[in-house]
Each structure stands twice: as C-alpha cells, then as structure tokens.
Design a protein around this nucleic acid. Structure first.
Length: 655
DNA sequence: CTAGGAACTTAGTAGTAGTAAA
DNA sequence: TTTACTACTACTAAGTTCCTAG
C-alpha cells in the first residue's frame, strides 16, 4: 500500500505511455477489472458491488475503477495519461452520489440562565443561540467588540421588549458554559476504545457519503457535511460576525445527479430535497444558498484528488507556464502604458506592474456587509505612501484581513505615477480611480488568451520556487539539509504571496524553554572541557550527579517546572571518549540552534498555501528526483493525493 | 455598463493525530 | 510510558472570474 518511489512510477508511466502510442491505443481502452480491484471493492462496502434499488427505482451503477487511487493498483487508465482535449463544457455523462449529511438538531436542555441574577426562561431557540454564545466564551471571540455587539443585538431582540433584557453583560450563562466545558473535558478524557469506535463510525459514514460515481470512475467527495448552525465567525472586522448562521434543511439543498442515477436518500425524516437537477455542465454534486449572512453559495464538490479538480489544476499551471512566452511582451506593454498621457492607460499599466511585481490580488469591489479589505484595484490613498528614493510603502488588509505591509523600491515611473494618483485625494479615495478589475482583466485577455490577474500569482510563485531551488547544488548534502533548502525556497514564495499564520500563544514560552536547554548544553560542554583537562593530567574528573544537580537547580531558579530536565551528564574517564562527547554536544548545540532559528523565521509564515495552490508540483517532483529526496519528505499525504498527475514529470521538465 | 448570480479557487484556524524526546 | 510539540486535516470563510439580465 505504501507509495512506490517516484522513479519507479516514472518508468512505469513512460513505459505505458510509449506502449499506448505504439499500439495506437490512445483511445479509451476498455478497462478490465484486475484482481486487486475486485478484491478492494469486495473489501470496502462503499463500492456498490450489487445493484441496489433506490427510492426512484433507478439502479446504482458499478464503477469500473477507482479513480482516486494514485498508487497504480487496479487502475486501468488514468486521466492524466490521456490527452487533455480542453473541450469540456460537458463535465460528465453519468453522476451518482449519496447527497449530504445534516448536523443533529439542538437538544433543548432548559439550562439555568439568569438576567441580573434572576432566573429567566429561554425558549428552545433562544437557548440554542445562548449555547452558541457559550461556545465562544473563553475564546478570543468573546472579547471581540463587534462580535459581542452583534450577538447582543440579535439575541436580545428575541425577548419581549417589556422584559428589558438588553444587555449581554447582565446575562449569566454559567450553567451553559459549565456544561460545554464538561463536554470538552469528557471528549479529552475518551479512552482509546471509545476513540477507535468513533473512528469506525466515521469510516462507515465516509464509505457511504464519501464517494461519487462519475462516468466509470469512483471518485472521492469533498466535504459532504452541511455546516452546523453557529454564530458567524467572519475574519477581521466583519460587520456580520456574531450573527446567527442558519440551520440548513434538506429543502434548501439542490442535488445534481444524472437523470438515470438513483436519487440519494435524504437522511432527515419528514423532509425532502429542495430540488433535483441534472446539470452536466457543472462539477458540483449539491448546493445551497444561505441568505442569513449576506448571500453565500455553498457547494459540495469532489475532493482535490478527483479528476475534475486535478484536470483544472493542471490547466491552471499550464496556463501560468504559457505566460512565460508572453511575459516579456506584456511587461514591455504595461511599461509603455505607464508612460501614457492617458490616465486610464497610465493606471492600467501601473496596476498591472503592482500585480506582476508584488503579486497583489486583483482586488474586486466589496459590499458594505463585508470586512473592509482590499487588493490592487481597490487600494485607497490611505494604504499607499510614496517615500524617498523611488520607494513606496503599502499597508493594507488583504484577503482574510491579513495585513500586507511592505516597503519596496519601484520603477521610477511607477513611483511618479503613484505620487500623481495620490495627489489631491482624501485618504478613503481610490488610488486607481479610473480603472476596475474588469478593465484590468480585459486588458490581460487581449495580451494572452485566458490571461487574468490571478495567473500572475501562480506564475510568479512557481518561477520563484524554481529559481530559488536552483540557486544551490544540494546533491551532496544530507537529506535534512536538502529539505531545509526546499523549505527555504518555499518560504520565499510564501513571503512573496504574503501567506501568514498567527504565532501561536505557546510559541514564546516554548522558544524560551528551547533557549534554556541550549544554554544547559553549553554548560555541559564547558564541564566536559574542564573534565578533559583533568583527565589529561591524570586527575579525578567531574562528578556526574553533582553536575546534574547544579543544572537542575539552575532550571528551578529560572522558574521552570519539574518536567524540564537538564541534559544527562556523562564524564568518561578517558581522553578519547571525552573528546568524542565534546564533538557530539557541539554538534547537537549547532543543530538545536539551527532548528530554533528556523522556527523563528517560520513562525508567522504559512508554507502550505503556496505548496497547495501556487507552486507547480512538477517543479518539486523534478527537484526531488534530481536530488534523490523522497517526495513524501516535502509533500505530505494530502498534497500527494492532490497531485498524482505531477508525479511523472522527469529530470528535464521545466516550468 | 453595472450589479449581482453562479461556480470555482484560495485562505487561515482549530483541533486532533502522530511522533520525537525525555 | 508520558509529555511536548509538530504536522495534518477538517472546516468554513473569502477571494476571483465569468456570465447574464436589466
């Protein structure tokens, strides 16, 4: 079941590819079922090996193969081994799945809730809301002003005005909060057996809901669970954070299946799907619209490992690669525009420059009901400053309200343009007042078919990764150093794209501990050296117990608890071994320091986003092959399962 | 030509599972 | 074996893009 080495896969793939060409078998081969396939299907009851009658009398189809398996077992023909005809208005000819699963209803427990110290009665709906508030107590959400205010508004308006229950602070939800905390404790205290049992239950659900049949393939479904109602937790200062997110019922759901596929069973008694459609020009399996928090569309799609996702992902990267052939032209062109007398052109050129050079997002308009975040086209004067020496400073909240804060030297013409665009404007006025995202994308389309602003992020990310990786020949290095180098290149991409994560609360504490431990190792090193001197002179060496006691005392004085133990002391009574120990400890200190430094550099940078969405995986695969780094060292399981199509790229592949 | 509907990609966080260190 | 920390995954929010209707 373990994945083969990449090399083996490549050989196999190219062999098969060649064979097919020779045989003229590029056309769809009738897939034969291998023994393995049959065995797998028999083992997992997810594959409908018997024809099952569903409620509309249609029969479930038996998939020929499991398309989500990338390990080569029992798969007759994989989509990435076929030519991409690019023409896929029709996404499927057959689609069958089990629909979605709903969260349990709220259980009305009649908790004791007080207002100004007096017990009050809550209806089931009120209690449910209060319960969701209780879930926020003790988290950061509890103290967020807008979240509090919105919840207060929405919750208090459910009461009769005459009661005067208007103030969130005056409510006492401790009964609810205690219950929630109890439940959390219980969850933590679960035994191995209980956990295993839960896991088994989850697997049964996964086996049932987690797969769809698309044409002849069995495909993995993405998230099929309907989001439970709760208080909306929008990022940043979202105007609607703290409001109730509605409970979704089957009537809200539209199911998309083939006409001749069985209608999935609705798991909520007394309810029925809102609609059944047979739209084979889209890839979604189910969808609903939620109007409680603005208007949001939610979809059930296939998982990232599916053909639908993989094919469009590969197209995305290939489009970004195509940009390579146009980039010089485009850069020349937008620079020309930057110099134009026409203000529209001037802004178009300047904005394109920022998107290309700083990897900014295009920045569509947003409504009043969303968090105030911006991208390139929606930058306002207050976000931009023209400094001396052709430098500009950008400071704004981007997607997910992540701060983009950067001071860069730009092209002199860009600097002049920005300065002029800023002139005479109020802080809240748009930097680019003559253009919008539509103009920008139309311009890009003219320069290259299919080109849009986001392609630049993919292009620049992948280009950066490839360039950074090639800056050093790592072939002779230890595997850890190779990985460190890969991560360093990955880091450069993450910085370019401004992919951040919040530093965990425990981070500083754990860094302090690490430092103290390194300090302790240094002490030990000094002790070893002094011990060496003594042994050389034939004198009695240091005492291990005493040294450890002293180190222990030092830790306690610094306030560390009992669990924090100093490094084990060993003072051998011969020169040779002592010297070896010295070498060992020195090495250990160095590696720990390096580790610490890396942790610090990475503490607020998220590498995963670029790995999953921006870096053409074939760059990584090639680099790994070239440097004999097993792919699983840099691509965790989920990443590998997303990119089966990339595993075959060989040594001369270039982005 | 604009607003907003529809479909799809990209994003960070919380919590859990896995693993290394002690 | 326990603890401490890291790595992953699940979840769901927040973008982009394309399109259509008014």
């Amino acid at each position: 079941m373990e994945e083969d080495s990449i090399k083996k896969k490549t050989d196999q793939a190219s062999r098969e590819g060649r064979k097919k060409e020779e045989d003229g078998l590029l056309k769809k081969r009738k897939p034969e079922k291998s023994l393995e396939t049959v065995a797998t299907e028999a083992k997992s009851n997810n594959a409908p090996s018997k024809k099952v009658k569903e409620n509309n009398g249609k029969e479930s189809r038996v998939p020929n193969r499991n398309a989500s398996e990338a390990d080569g077992e029992g798969v007759a023909l994989k989509w990435w081994e076929k030519e991409d005809d690019e023409n896929d208005d029709v996404k499927w000819n057959y689609l069958e799945h089990k629909g979605v699963i709903f969260p349990p209803f709220y259980e009305y427990r009649k908790f004791l809730v007080k207002y100004n110290g007096n017990p009050i009665e809550l209806t089931a709906d009120q209690e449910e809301m209060a319960y969701y508030w209780g879930q926020s107590v003790g988290t950061d959400w509890e103290t967020k002003e807008h979240y509090r205010a919105n919840f207060q508004k929405e919750f208090t308006k459910t009461f009769d005005k005459k009661l005067g229950y208007t103030n969130l602070e005056s409510f006492d939800f401790s009964d609810i909060v205690n219950y929630i905390n109890d439940q959390r404790e219980k969850k933590k205290a679960k035994t191995k057996e209980e956990k295993a049992e839960e896991k088994a239950k989850k697997k049964v659900k996964d086996d049932y809901y987690g797969f769809a049949i698309v044409d002849n393939d069995k495909e993995k479904v993405g998230g099929y669970a309907i989001e439970p109602p709760t208080l909306f937790k929008g990022r940043g200062k979202h105007p609607k954070a703290g409001f109730m997110k509605a409970r979704i019922l089957p009537e809200d759901i539209t199911i998309n299946i083939a006409e001749n596929a069985p209608i999935p069973k609705c798991d909520m008694p007394g309810h029925a799907w809102g609609d059944i459609v047979h739209n084979n020009e889209v890839t979604w399996l189910a969808f609903y619209k939620d109007d409680t928090i603005n208007t949001t569309y939610k979809y059930i799609f296939l998982a990232a490992s599916s053909k639908f996702k993989g094919l469009s992902d590969r197209r995305k990267y290939d489009k970004a690669r195509r940009l390579k052939d146009h980039i010089e032209d485009i850069r020349r062109d937008y620079r020309k525009k930057m110099n134009s007398k026409d203000k529209f052109e001037k802004q178009l050129g300047t904005a394109t420059y920022l998107i290309d050079v700083l990897a900014l997002r295009v920045g569509n308009e947003k409504s009043e009901d969303e968090a105030d975040t911006v991208g390139c086209c929606s930058l306002r004067k207050e976000h931009v400053e023209a400094l001396a020496d052709n430098q500009i400073s950008l400071d704004f909240l981007g997607k997910d309200s992540m701060r983009y804060f950067n001071t860069v030297t730009v092209d002199p013409q860009v600097w002049l343009n920005i300065k002029s665009f800023l002139e005479g404007k109020e802080p809240e006025q748009d930097l680019f007042d003559k253009i919008n995202t539509n103009d920008l994308n139309s311009y890009l389309k003219d320069m290259m078919p299919g080109l849009t602003a986001k392609v630049f992020r993919t292009y620049n990310a992948s280009t950066t990764l490839e360039r950074e990786l090639s800056k050093k020949d790592v072939s002779g290095l230890e595997i850890e150093d190779k990985m460190a180098w890969y991560n360093e290149a990955n880091r450069q991409v993450a910085i370019l794209c401004n992919h951040q994560k919040t530093v965990s609360k425990a981070f500083d504490v754990s860094v302090e501990k690490q430092k103290a431990k390194i300090e302790d190792m240094r002490d030990y090193l000094a002790e070893l050296k002094s011990h060496l001197g003594k042994v050389r002179k034939g004198k009695e060496g240091l005492d291990e117990g005493k040294a450890e006691e002293a180190a222990e005392r030092k830790f306690r004085q610094a306030g560390y608890d009992e669990k924090m133990k100093p490094i084990k002391r060993k003072f051998p009574n011969d020169v040779e071994r002592t010297q070896r120990y010295i070498g060992d400890v020195e090495k250990k200190i160095k590696s720990k320091e390096k580790e610490l430094q890396e942790r610090d550099e990475n503490k607020s940078i998220a590498l995963g986003t670029s790995k999953l969405n921006y870096n053409d995986p074939r760059i990584t695969v090639r680099w790994c092959k070239q440097n004999e780094v097993p792919i699983e060292k840099v691509f965790p399981k989920t990443v590998r399962s997303k990119f089966p199509w990339a595993m075959y790229s060989d040594l001369d592949w270039r982005f």
